[in-house]
Design a protein around this nucleic acid. Structure first.
Lengths: 147, 147
DNA sequence: TATTGTTATACTCTATAACTATA
DNA sequence: TATAGTTATAGAGTATAACAATA
């Protein structure tokens, strides 16, 4: 059995504090901005499709640690707004590929970040070293989740 | 006007990635573990009371960037389980101080030494340098939110 | 039989609104 | 009038369950 690299107390404190910080930031992210804008998950999914290219519902759900049924709801919203398009899978008749549309690209460019403007502003106030620390921590958080 | 310390592209990428990571971790935090256990907000509130001493509903709500009505629900749950107690405010008849009870302390202590949750386990797998980075990032996240 | 997607439903967490009591 | 707390209601976001179609 591998010996933990950090003291038990430091570990527990970090877990508590990270949980609290994450809860706090998600509340702010959810309530900020106009209510009719895309929500956090929709923006994230759009960003993922933009970065990775067309993906299936199931793949997207796995990437964001979410149930396919939940991702379905997110994609339905994006599709209704015209920000994503369906494409049949070339070989597998079950699967459906979702791709970001030109309207989706335009949305990302224009008002995609509206809901997160406060965060952008707050981040730009960080010192260079602090920003570097924060950016380095993001993949660590994702690794904790296990993706 | 102050010039941002980081490139626009790096800033936007960081905002997107942090938002996604936060969403991911909050989903896992919510769904993991037995459903009858205390939820994330309840555990956080208990930790806060343990650390800061007795606080009012309004103070707790401010600390966690939450509405008093929402904090009320959280405190009601904790009170029902016997993990917090009410105390009248010495001078202001409107205010009610909430304090962690001995049962609340016991619950926290047992949780600490009991079976680690996934996050504790995952964190203990981090390299010392990585753990240091993650811990350093937590207050930065809280600062972003503005607490 | 396993996987993909869909539909229907329910649950968790938090917000908004309206009220009462004390300052 | 302002602030603390309470109660009732609503909403967003995601999960669970059950099903049909394809592999």
């Amino acid at each position: 059995m591998k010996k933990p690299a950090h003291s038990e107390a430091a570990l527990q404190a970090a877990v508590t504090e990270l949980s609290l910080a994450v809860g706090q930031i998600i509340r702010r992210l959810r309530t900020e901005g106009n209510p009719d804008a895309l929500n956090l998950s929709q923006l994230g999914t759009l960003a993922r499709l933009d970065k990775n290219g067309p993906m299936t519902n199931a793949d997207l759900a796995r990437t964001e640690s979410m149930k396919p049924q939940s991702m379905n709801t997110i994609l339905a919203g994006l599709e209704q707004e015209g920000f994503v398009e369906r494409r049949p899978h070339p070989t597998d008749g079950r699967q459906i590929l979702f791709a970001i549309s030109s309207a989706g690209h335009e949305m990302r460019r224009q008002r995609g970040i509206a809901k997160r403007n406060w965060m952008t502003a707050a981040m730009s106030e960080l010192e260079p070293e602090e920003f570097k620390t924060l950016v380095a921590a993001i993949p660590l958080i994702r690794r904790l989740v296990g993706s």
